[in-house]
């Protein structure tokens, strides 16, 4: 009896197989399309990763320059961009990592380079100056304080991320 109930007619069989196969084909076409559309959301923020830069024990209260490389992806072309940071410990023993890029026109600033103004960051291009914490000295060309790197300390190593304008980092 039950056999009879479950008997599948030719019409039903064809219906099932055709929807089944058609469904697979539609899925085959639609899945990659959906994946492509969602791809930018699924991908993590580019450049958000942290890079090891220095040993924490090497960091002193005097700013030191550390050079490192960051992978940059420009469409298909991947390259390494050299970067540097001025790193020191402040009075509270907290690590400060400043970007050496002058906020005026993008030259590289140096610590203690100008004899007339010791213990300041100095930009050789247009004589911009910043105090030790990166604040721009009024009366010199830069209008904003130096950017600060996001940082993390793990296993005695200092990792740096993105440089952010002060107030955000």
């Amino acid at each position: 009896m039950s056999e009879k109930k479950h008997r599948v007619s030719r019409r039903q069989f064809l219906n099932y197989t055709l929807t089944g196969v058609g469904g697979f084909m539609a899925a085959g076409i639609l899945m990659p399309m959906a994946r492509f559309a969602l791809d930018p959301i699924l991908k993590g923020e580019a450049g958000a990763e942290l890079v090891p830069v220095a040993q924490v024990k090497d960091i002193t209260t005097e700013p030191q320059r550390f050079d490192f490389k960051v992978k940059v992806k420009d469409a298909w072309y991947e390259s390494e961009e050299p970067k540097s940071a001025w790193v020191y410990k402040d009075d509270k023993g907290e690590i400060v990592a400043l970007s050496p890029i002058c906020k005026h026109l993008g030259c590289t600033v140096n610590w203690n380079a100008d004899k007339a103004h010791p213990n300041q960051f100095f930009c050789p291009c247009h004589y911009g100056r910043y105090t030790k914490d990166g604040t721009n000295v009024p009366g010199t060309p830069p209008m904003h304080p130096l950017d600060r790197y996001e940082y993390k300390v793990k296993d005695g190593k200092l990792y740096l991320g993105k440089a952010k304008p002060r107030g955000e980092a």
């Binding site: 050299p82 026109l105 993008g106 030259c107 590289t108 247009h126």
Partner: peptide, 10 residues
């Protein structure tokens, strides 16, 4: 090109 990177503002 390295010099340019360091003194690009001038």
């Amino acid at each position: 090109s390295e010099i340019e990177r360091q003194l690009k503002g001038r």
